[in-house]
Simulated assay, not measured.
Amino acid sequence: MEYRPLGTTGVEVSALSFGTAPLGQLFGPVPFEQARAAAFAAVDLGMNLIDTSSYYGDAEDRLGRIIGDLPDDVLIATKGGRLGWDEFDFSPDGIRASLEASLARLGRDHVDLFQLHDIDFVPLGPVLEDAYAELVRLRDEGKCRFIGMTGYALPTTRRVLLETDVDVVLNYSHGTLLDNSLSEELAPIARERGTGLMNAAAVSLGILTPGVLRMDGHNIASDASLRAAQAMARTAAEHGVDIAFVANQYALQRVQCDTTVIGSTNIEHLTAATAALTTPIDEELLAALLQSRLPTEAQQWDVGLPENNVWDWGDGETT
């Protein structure tokens, strides 16, 4: 396992972090013993950050049952403010209540990192002002060591980086084989600001997997991204390679971030993702795959409020 500084927080994080949405049964039933085994396998593989959320089903409750058996140096990160698929509460009182409830479920008096979850879906003004101020208060009170925000849209994460002094940001699906705008657009700002940068959804929420060839649509990914992913999957298959493995290789070896969150309760998948960190990329195959990558602006997904997705691409055009 490789370890990297998490911005200027003073802590080092594993290149892979353990994501717990599947552990919390967000995508279907998972027996507790399987969830427990996956968490300990991730730690045994060297992952020292566990990323969870109050939104991830019963993930926090399950972690609370095993957290006392984990090594003391494992970092626990959780999120608040997202209550459901389309329900959010980023008010100061709501944020505070969310963290208190998370701490109770986890059996902790503090977490290492507390982030606001998927802020793209609400007007950003109050989030970047009132909600951010509450995060600072919670950090000052010792309820969390570090604070941050998460989102999908590049413009949203860019605003967080430029308009607040959060310790960490997490962005989904922009540090991938399909779209590496996380490195191109966000990483330079994060480095300048000293902000930790977390990457998530290395397989683009499931479309950089062999199963994409059976998909005729996706609930979040754009049609353009789906077609590009299908072209990549066909190319990988022609080379006898699993597109998901190459996608993890790319995210872990080429994307400029401090850690990439891998969510799975399948120990074989966790082990394969860890192997992707050190297995050299087949440059000829990579070049062939990247032939299917669209221009960055064409890869962006319409997630959250339209106003939070507006981006100036430097040519006078906004999308």
Rank of each mutant, 00 (worst) to 15 (best):
A202R: 09
D112K: 07
R193H: 11
T296S: 14
G240E: 05
D282M: 02
H239G: 00
D216Q: 12
D315M: 01
A190L: 07
D86G: 10
E60H: 07
D86E: 13
D216Y: 04
W301V: 14
A221C: 05
E307T: 11
G28P: 08
A37G: 05
T278A: 06
E184N: 13
K143A: 15
Q34W: 03
G211T: 01
A133Y: 02
P5A: 09
I262Y: 11
L138W: 04
A42G: 13
R293I: 04
I147R: 06
Q299R: 14
M215R: 14
L186P: 15
L270F: 08
N219L: 11
E307H: 08
V30L: 03
G24K: 00
I66F: 08
D167Q: 07
E184M: 12
G148Q: 05
P280Y: 00
E87M: 10
F146S: 13
E184T: 14
P188Q: 11
E268S: 15
E307W: 03
T209Q: 14
T52Y: 01
T209N: 11
I207V: 15
P306V: 03
V203A: 14
E307G: 15
D44G: 08
E192L: 13
N309Y: 05
D69M: 10
A133N: 14
C257A: 15
E100Q: 13
T209H: 10
P5V: 07
A224H: 07
D89E: 08
P22G: 06
L285I: 04
V168E: 02
M198D: 09
R293M: 04
I50L: 06
G80Q: 03
I220M: 14
R191I: 00
N171F: 01
D72Q: 11
N309D: 09
V11T: 07
S17F: 00
P210S: 11
L290H: 13
W85A: 15
L286F: 00
G217W: 04
R4M: 04
A200V: 08
L186F: 13
E283D: 11
V30Y: 02
A273H: 03
A298M: 10
L178A: 10
D120F: 06
A298Y: 05
E12F: 11
S181W: 03
G142F: 05
P295E: 09
F40R: 06
G217Q: 06
E163I: 04
L63I: 04
